[in-house]
Design a binder for these strands. Sequence first.
DNA 1: ACCAGCCGTCCGGCATCTCGGACGTGTCGG
DNA 2: CCGACACGTCCGAGATGCCGGACGGCTGGT
Lengths: 273, 273
Amino acid sequence: MSRTVLKALDVLECLAFSGQSLSAPEVAERCGLTRPTTYRLLSTLAARGYVAGGQDGRFRLGNKMLSLSKRLLEYAQLPQLARPELERLCQFAGETVHLGALEDIEVLYVDKVESLTAARMYSIVGSRSPLHSTSLGKAILAFLPDSERTMLLERISLAQRTPNTITDRGRLEEDLRVVRERGYAIDDVENEEGIRCVGAPILGNAGMPIAAVSISGPVVRMTASRVDDLAPALLETGRRISQKFGYISPIRDEPATAASDPAAPTTAPLGEP
Amino acid sequence: MSRTVLKALDVLECLAFSGQSLSAPEVAERCGLTRPTTYRLLSTLAARGYVAGGQDGRFRLGNKMLSLSKRLLEYAQLPQLARPELERLCQFAGETVHLGALEDIEVLYVDKVESLTAARMYSIVGSRSPLHSTSLGKAILAFLPDSERTMLLERISLAQRTPNTITDRGRLEEDLRVVRERGYAIDDVENEEGIRCVGAPILGNAGMPIAAVSISGPVVRMTASRVDDLAPALLETGRRISQKFGYISPIRDEPATAASDPAAPTTAPLGEP
DNA sequence: ACCAGCCGTCCGGCATCTCGGACGTGTCGG
DNA sequence: CCGACACGTCCGAGATGCCGGACGGCTGGT
């Protein structure tokens, strides 16, 4: 469509695939562009940080590319990084543990670990649930930036799933305020009859919630008091997974410093902090 | 400079920072663009995979962004991922181990591990050496795609560093052919008097060499036969580090499948395969 | 020292893209 | 059922960026 933009993307890809720094004439030759056009596009891309121009007149890909795809990276790594923590939490709690990520206006179930002792629930990995009626959804919603949360709340319907579902916008916002202070969200039989959940957010490098963990169980076992008892371990699990995404954070837009090893084995026991 | 490209970048950043899928009008509103322009830019970016457009008319960042910054990612993660393997190799070989990456037309020393028993060499991390006279450089050169290697060979000078340095383009290309078959490169006192080295490549997701490992030592200990004895462990180290970059490989341009856990502890002893 | 070749930049003619506006369509609400 | 709104698309006027060409400045070779 827009031929100018296509050329700019050509330049970007040319630099990315070469992997090396290229001089402007080299870029021009590889992309089949004239020199003036190449200089204009390179300086435009450089002004935004998409390419980094050395003073020696050579250009390489800029770190802006990385910071833009941070979110994609987190999403791609989420299941692998979260798995062991989910299993530990499940073993500790003896209840089903879910991992959910925000997708559009719903929460997408990304992973699930079921306790051996708990009755098996049907598989819901890959399915979606509303944001306003689940602990996963509320945990994510609560920690979104105000603007994002507002835009999302505008678009969701607050449908009644059970008698306990919060269907009033004001009451939901009040609940989210409590979640922010408390650190975790409670689904008090608001999404499914007979099921009570606790959820805690997983925060990415920029403090943005990229997902959430939850513990779910039948009301007969998941009493209100047990929910609060499980909360500290749940929060600890959320923090642990969040930390695993910390190693991307030092990559800002230019300086690259050392980072903690994300693969370092942490075998400390779960429990009260 | 190029106002059209700047707008396209605005759209890209808007989608990246929102993290969520946005409808075209939302993008238009956030970026302050008119609807027709927004549609054109979005479809242009979508045609190249920079944004992924759902059939529901919503757009999110495409995986092309990730595949473009793969190289940057690898480079950022290289030191952390390679460290433990370098240390094991150093302990096994009892000689100095280097990690080097291609930067422009030279090899950049990224990390170094020195044996306790070996005499300390001056610190060279951060410095550069020629490609044609080092085992690191030749290991990288040998496994580059033909076109890249040719372009690089055009630009380097084949300066004589020692009497053994290969200063003839034809002989160098023949040596690189041997390196490709054998799997590792030998610096037979070609870069520094009295120092002999073996180097093996570290291959990234696409089979492109992103760095190399080497074992260096004084000729009195690093005889030609010892070089060959150390080669299997060196190659194994290169393979191990290469594998750590494998988890990015499943991320092609759309399908995202499960990957092997990069953090899995591998404690098998080094040695002959 | 000279010359040659390349690099980076600047200028006119032309093609292309953008803007503003308007149209047909689908959905939601009354 | 109809009206209203928003979405996605299409069109002319105008502006903007692109191509081809040409100019200083530099490096490297002779």
